[in-house]
């Protein structure tokens, strides 16, 4: 077994364990805490005894706690999420389109910003002390540190209400009744709605990538190997390319981690723009106490992070020629 395989196996085991613990924490929060939501669900509302028994049976609340736990585990891990209370639909049927809607907004935004901001950041770092560098840092700091819903509100007020360039809310106009994903997404109307949330997401994430790339290049700029490259007669741009290549790894790792946190990062963005994604659905479900939906959505979010963490570690160990996989990868 090579070092890399051993490393991979260890990370994999850790991820599985983490998933189990995370899922258990969700279970504890939802079932065991005093006044837990499932209890509240039963006791609230004007239900008669029969209905209560029926609901308890339906959600397995009449069984002993360990049984509930086992049932819960097996159902989550096999992606059997049960029925949504409010929507009277299988949870997966509710979540699946929402998941797709979130992905179609956030993945392109993240990729766009990772590429553009990193390039800009590298250029800014190379020209340290320039106006461009200062301006780009200040503006991205502003965008990154301001809570995303405030940026979103500003964008709505300026671009939707005052300039009327794009609609403020929703993913399609109210009259549209598309059928299937292709019809939903492949239309000008969708693109029109897409514009503002996409822009806000891109700008919101720009700060981290820009700074990461800029610091990386600043750090490399004074390095010995770049001095040798310079002595070889490489042009400024060729040198910058080498400095950039040497700063890629943290950016790549960070991108992967961000990708994992994609569903939980921009919940408020979806809320403000009324984007029918998984984040907004989760907030609605919490407000309306639709707990099967909540636990499924939280589980998906946690799983995404764990998988991304795993991917980041493996990528790091794989791509860095100088890291021996055994000790490599930040724990």
């Amino acid at each position: 077994m090579t070092k890399f395989q051993r490393f991979l196996l260890k990370r994999l085991a850790i991820s599985v364990l983490l998933t189990l613990v995370a899922v258990s924490v969700i279970f504890v929060v939802l079932r065991l805490l005093p006044g837990s939501p499932f209890e509240a669900l039963v006791t609230s509302g004007n239900l008669n005894q029969e209905q209560i028994t029926e609901i308890r049976a339906m959600y397995g609340l009449d069984e002993p706690m360990w049984r509930q736990y086992v049932n819960y585990l097996t159902s989550l891990l096999t992606f059997q999420f049960g029925y949504s209370i409010l929507r009277s639909q299988p949870v997966w049927a509710v979540l699946e389109p929402r998941l797709i809607n979130s992905l179609i907004l956030l993945v392109p935004a993240l990729v766009t910003t990772a590429i553009l901001s990193s390039l800009l950041g590298m250029y800014a770092g190379w020209n340290r002390g320039s106006r461009l560098e200062k301006f780009s840092i200040v503006s991205t700091t502003l965008l990154r540190s301001t809570p995303v819903f405030i940026t979103a509100i500003f964008f709505i007020i300026v671009f939707a209400y005052n300039l009327e360039l794009a609609p403020a809310l929703g993913m399609r106009s109210i009259r549209a009744t598309p059928d299937g994903y292709i019809e939903t997404f492949a239309s000008l109307d969708f693109l029109h709605h897409y514009l503002l949330p996409f822009a806000v997401a891109v700008l919101y994430y720009s700060g981290d990538f820009l700074l990461l790339a800029r610091n990386g290049v600043v750090e490399k700029r004074g390095s010995e190997f770049l001095k040798l490259h310079r002595a070889k007669g490489l042009t400024e741009m060729e040198q910058l390319a080498r400095a950039g290549r040497n700063s890629m790894l943290p950016i790549l790792t960070y991108f992967t981690l961000r990708l994992g946190m994609i569903f939980q990062g921009l919940i408020l963005l979806e809320v403000v723009f009324s984007w029918p994604g998984i984040g907004r659905e989760l907030v609605l479900a919490i407000q309306q106490q639709d707990y099967p939906l909540v636990q499924a959505a939280v589980f998906i979010m946690a799983l995404a992070v764990i998988l991304a963490n795993l991917a980041a570690d493996v990528l790091y160990a794989y791509f860095d020629p100088t890291v021996s996989a055994s000790g490599g990868g930040s724990a």
Partner: peptide, 27 residues
Amino acid sequence: AAERRDVLWEDIAYIPQSAMDSLDPVM
């Protein structure tokens, strides 16, 4: 700058101080 680049390495080459750090680690 461009004229100097032509002189570098073609006419004047350089052996740096710390070979440990002077080579590009990812090339």
